[in-house]
Amino acid sequence: MGKILELTVEDKLYTTKYETDSRSHIKVNGDLCRTCSSKPCLRFCSGDVYKINPSEPDQVTVNYENCLECGTCRHGCPFNAIDWQYPDGAMGVKYRYG
């Protein structure tokens, strides 16, 4: 891992502990994403969950395993295209310090 000032968000997320579920607790409505040119989800997410789908640049991929469960996407998506539910019990992020 790099020096403390040079960590990427991936490096940071590597320190966060998760109990990863086999299915996603986040669904995005791809039809709405297609109409969205600004894609704020690429920026507002604290856990870097949303990324451009390399094979379909007007769509986003959902790396739900990274989700810190902050809920920003539920308020930040201008089209309400993100359906975010609580992960199943005891699944998802598990802070040791918090």
């Binding site: 000032l5 968000v9 490096d11 940071k12 320190t15 604290s46 870097d48 902050c70 310090y97 918090g98």
Partner: peptide, 30 residues
């Protein structure tokens, strides 16, 4: 991004010296 913003804060010279040599234990968002 939230993480990028924290990096900007962290990298300010008045701040970076306070955490120099530290190691990240946990990253969180809320």
């Amino acid at each position: 991004t939230p993480s990028g913003l924290n990096d900007r804060f962290k990298q300010h010279p008045a701040v970076s010296r306070l955490i120099d040599g530290g190691e990240l234990l946990e990253y969180s968002g809320h």
